[in-house]
């Protein structure tokens, strides 16, 4: 068996008559960070939602060699993949700790207790705020909680949708360094980002998505140097 953790082949997703994702194929090798960059409305979020099973899709999705295309979201979580959605989707009226514990809903009680200690070590801020309601956290803390909650399920693949959205540069730097640490800890990552510069700096491999299709792919460092990418996504203000 290859070391491909997630493999998506010829994926089509439609909202009514609008084709949002059109024949997309991407691979996430085990132990790597793969990023999909592209403008607003390119279909990146739709791609992640289909991979997670939130949206029905046509094509093939294999995770660790098993076809999961027709599995419901809950099964996909159980089999080792989690998604941190763009809108975080926290349990706003529950305390931080309950949010985390529920993240470990499908793992055993002992694993859950073990895992929450790890999350608290990785995000000390969450431990300080464990009794606070999730809805009262700041934007950066919410993103941390969303990631922490996803990690509670002990995923082998973590999918992140715009983790830097609405966050100040210093916090973005924090979040990205945590993503890097997660890879060293053996979690593979599929990252969707509008902040192309930061994403390309972080990732091993990258795809560019435009109007529902993959238009370029390659080593992240190569793409970061590609003049077309620099012009379209990195902007002239690169510093």
């Amino acid at each position: 068996m290859s070391d491909l953790l997630l493999s998506i082949r010829d994926l089509h997703v439609a909202y009514g008559k609008v084709q949002a994702v059109n024949g997309v194929s991407i691979d996430v090798p085990r132990g790597e960070i793969v990023t999909v960059i592209g403008a607003n409305g390119a279909g990146k979020t739709t791609l992640l939602n289909a991979a997670m099973g939130i949206l029905p899709a046509r094509g093939a999705i294999t995770f660790e060699g098993a076809n999961i295309l027709r599995r419901p979201v809950e099964d996909r979580v159980g089999s080792g993949m989690t998604l941190v959605p763009e809108r975080r989707e926290l349990f706003a009226t529950m305390p931080v700790e309950d949010n985390l514990m529920l993240g470990g809903f499908l793992v055993s009680a002992s694993e859950r207790n073990e895992q929450i200690e790890q999350v608290y070590t990785r995000f000390p801020r969450l431990k300080e705020r464990r009794r606070q309601l999730a809805g009262t956290l700041s934007g950066g803390e919410r993103q941390m909680l969303a990631m922490g909650r996803a990690l509670m399920a002990k995923p082998r693949l973590l999918m992140l949708d715009e983790p830097s959205l609405g966050l100040a540069p210093l916090i973005v730097a924090d979040i990205f360094s945590i993503i890097r640490d997660l890879r060293s800890a053996g979690v593979s990552i599929l990252l969707v980002e509008q902040n192309a510069r930061a994403a390309l700096r972080l990732a091993d491999h990258a795809y560019v998505m435009e109007l529902g299709e993959i238009t370029m792919s390659g080593k992240a460092s190569d793409l970061a140097a590609d003049p077309k990418i620099v012009e379209t996504y990195l902007g002239i203000a690169a510093h």
Partner: peptide, 8 residues
């Protein structure tokens, strides 16, 4: 220090 961090 506060805003841009080391990343800038």
């Amino acid at each position: 220090q506060a805003y841009l961090g080391a990343d800038a």
